[in-house]
Amino acid sequence: MEQIKQHKFLLPEKNNKLPVWLTQNDNYNPCRDRDHFIDKTLLALTGKLTLLKNQPAMATDSFFSASFKLICTIVLILLISLSHRLMFPLIVLAVFLTYLACLDSRRISSILKPVSAAMFFSLCIVLPAFISGQQNTLMLPLKVFLTTMSAAFLAQRTAFSALTKALGGLHVPGLFIMVLDLTLKYIILLGNTAADLLIALRLRSIGKNDRKYKSMGSIMGMVFLKANEYSIDTHNAMLCRCFTGDYHVSQKHRLESRYFIYMAIILTMIVVFLYAEEYL
């Protein structure tokens, strides 16, 4: 009884009855509409978000530190770019393909997709030169393939947070690292917001919508407003926690025996490069 009394007190008299149409069944029969774009957008967005969220789980190496992998990748990219002969890129290709063969199919496809796209793009660029008789231009797509694959391996085997921390070791400014960290965090947060809004749109898309792109525009606008709100809140929260513009990335280094192995690997790479380029 108390509930009902409170109920009457809170809701004005004119409002406490349901509209008549709400007590009847609409017997609604939907008409067909072409709205696969919502499903496709949602699927693509959730797929990318899952990849980003699962990223730390993929990083399973414990022996090789993120700093080593980062330095190793930079040196390797440098050596591939500097090579004039085919030998060194072919040796790297053989190593990469052997490593690739040890991975499961899902991971192979996630590495090869972006790498193939980059190689195809560079192939299109050098194709006119190759047709006109410049045989050595094919080195460029091969180099693009190898350098993007090195970056893809690094991204696959290293958590993004560990990678940004490793950048601190290379004396990259702290503010730059903070921006990178925040960017990834907000890509995931805003991606989730966009995915939820798309789900809401999909659940309420029960008929013919002649203004699909207007709805999509509204969702993008909402995500933009959320981004603005998040950025203001983050800035205020940082100020409240004494942020003055300095972002300190903690780096504690102790000499470990594995560092000698790291150095040996990098030196081997350089020696192989010098040998392949016939400097030795």
């Binding site: 609604y28 029969n29 309420r204």
Partner: peptide
Amino acid sequence: LSAKKFHQ
């Protein structure tokens, strides 16, 4: 059509 009817 089935999806729209279900979501309604």
